[in-house]
Design a protein around this nucleic acid. Structure first.
Lengths: 200, 200
DNA sequence: GTTAGCATGTAAGGAGTTACATGATTTT
DNA sequence: AAAATCATGTAACTCCTTACATGCTAAC
């Protein structure tokens, strides 16, 4: 039970799509993926994994592979891999993201799996995110106009820096959108037809 | 009961220090203060206010002031004001911030009340924040070096933009720190001796 | 006179963390 | 042999949101 968030589900499935992994390793990958900003705890991760197993999206890998060292079937670690349903679910999550994908907390994760999607989905997320950011710009600018009296030097400085950061992100997003629209990603293959070579 | 977070307490006390207010108004101020990023809900705010009253830090203002319109003592709104203990508590929070002040969620609130502090406290927060940001830079850079293989184009792009943003913030912080150290804030008065004129 | 905004509140629940508990393996 | 790190898990708790419930006032 205990409904897990879509973004965590997406992240776990996405990582397991690249390679089967056990929980501990998964957490490290997850934290480096999220840019050391969010540090997901075991108290969240392990129950989530159990939930995903119960939902039939992942399974415990029975294959006792000894790629790491010479421990034969000791079963200290539990390696998880995607089921067919899990792969489908991942495609579903990554292809029809919905508004939550352009929230601060979720955008990064969706972006990180862009290589697993198509141009349409990428554009949906990038453009949604840009709209969000532009709304934020408008809101702050209007607030600044409405009452400039009650803000002291520091508050104004904070606001100014905030605006600058958001403007910077908007420019970045615009560049990415233009590149996607142009479609001349000569250095990238279409992940639908020809998925990029996995890690090792 | 229900221990409230220090940052929320700081924000509420800080706003009430400027002017007594009722909950609804407080929420709007709070949200514009936090740059429209966090939208604090009533479900958090009102219980917090009750908690602060119970703790003796704020009180319901008995003075039925009719600055807004001609509603005589109808008691639709509950205007809160700081007690002497509340003012002390605010000074305590703002003067000895501790490590939590340079976290993402709290830094902005502390910064917004810089005008109510002294140079030493400001520098403590600014320098702590800058250290945090530099640690983050180091972590990402090392992660990028350790395994450059398994990152695809998009992941790298996300990482690059993240680095750029954090570098931008570090430069900003450095400027602010230099200004504080130089002490030539000629356009600002010392808030200890001569607090800046409140809103209206 | 009804819609929109002001204003206050509560109950239930979501999404996570912290702290704890356990044991195996690797390094010093 | 001890310390560090790997690895898995649970229980309690925190902080906050959502959804609901209520009533008043301003605008159209």
């Amino acid at each position: 039970m205990s409904r897990r968030s879509d973004v965590l589900e997406l992240a776990v499935l996405g990582l397991l799509l690249d390679a089967p992994m056990h929980g501990y390793e998964l957490r490290k990958q997850l934290n480096s993926l999220l840019g050391t900003i969010r540090a997901l705890s075991y108290g969240t991760l392990y129950p989530t994994l159990k939930g995903l197993v119960a939902a039939g999206l992942i399974r415990e890998a029975t294959t006792t592979d000894d790629t790491t060292s010479s421990l034969a079937g000791k079963r200290a670690r539990i390696v998880y891999e995607l089921t067919a349903e899990g792969k489908e679910r991942f495609q579903g999550l990554v292809r029809s993201p919905g508004p939550s994908a352009w929230e601060d907390e979720n955008f990064g994760v969706h972006f990180a799996f862009f290589a697993r999607t198509d141009t349409a989905s990428r554009l949906e997320i990038l453009e949604g995110r840009r709209s969000r950011m532009q709304e934020r710009l408008d809101a702050v600018r209007q607030a600044a106009l409405r009452r400039r009296e009650r803000f002291d030097h520091y508050t104004l400085e904070l606001q100014r820096h905030g605006l600058e950061s958001v403007e910077h992100e908007v420019r970045w997003l615009t560049e990415l959108i233009d590149t996607e629209r142009a479609g001349n990603m000569t250095h990238l293959r279409d992940p639908d037809k020809d998925p990029p070579a996995p890690g090792r």
